[in-house]
Amino acid sequence: MIDVARRFLRSRSAMLGLSILSVVIVVAAAAPVVFPGSPFRRVDQPLLPPFGAYLFGTDVLGRDVAAGIAHGARTSLMIGVLATAVAVAVGTVVGGVAGFYGGRPDDVLMRMTEFFQTIPTFLFAILLVAILTPSTKSIVIAIAVVSWPAVARLVRGEFLAMRGREFVVACVCLGMSDRRVIFRHILPNCLSPIVVTGSLIVATAILVESALSFLGLGDPNTMSWGFMIGAGRTFLRTAWWLCTVPGVAILLTVVAINLLGEGLNDTLNPRLRNR
């Protein structure tokens, strides 16, 4: 474990990702303190340029862009983490059952997974949000629904491989319950690919949430980066900062999470250890 931590700390890209992400997390956590009240609140004249009275200026309704960025960070991270948690939980259960038991359950579960995989991810997410009416909950559900199949297939593969390994066979011979075999022996050994995939799903979830909000399908009561870009798009020629600032925020966050995921992959995957 210590060895893994040390390797992780030595990975330059992972550390870069971690530090950017930490900044985002701190900003998100500090948002209610630094920018109290609703980020939709009008604070001053509309369209004040950045680096004046307000760090990132004001938008078309006189809202503080910096406050929007801070509160938007909360939304992005929250939706990213929640949606990923749901997707990973569902994907792991489905993939685990399919991989462990094989046969009919495997067939049924994998056909179902494939069914979900054949629908274009983003269109499916739009459809779900439109049907469920836009809200934070429906966005989390939509992202989870389109993200779990990838996890399920990955976990199934891992479980299938583990299922035939000597230590698992030995456990079964010893008469261990299925649950104990799965949770004590197989799952811990599959954890690293799940963590890596999960971290990448967080990045995808943030992008999907931004894209949905950009299209006006976000929760209209929650400030989010995608919403800010969507609302500022019309002013690209006149007020560049409205799209640029949240755009850079999304870019940095997603890059940071990807770097982190890659770093985790490098350190957790023994085969890549000496790459």
Binding site: S38, F40, R42, L61, G216, P220, N221, A231, T234
Partner: peptide, 16 residues
């Protein structure tokens, strides 16, 4: 269209 959303946000703030 989007101006209606912005208009809604404005009304929300006025009501607040």
């Amino acid at each position: 269209g989007e101006e209606w959303q912005r208009y809604g946000e404005y009304v929300q703030q006025v009501l607040a």
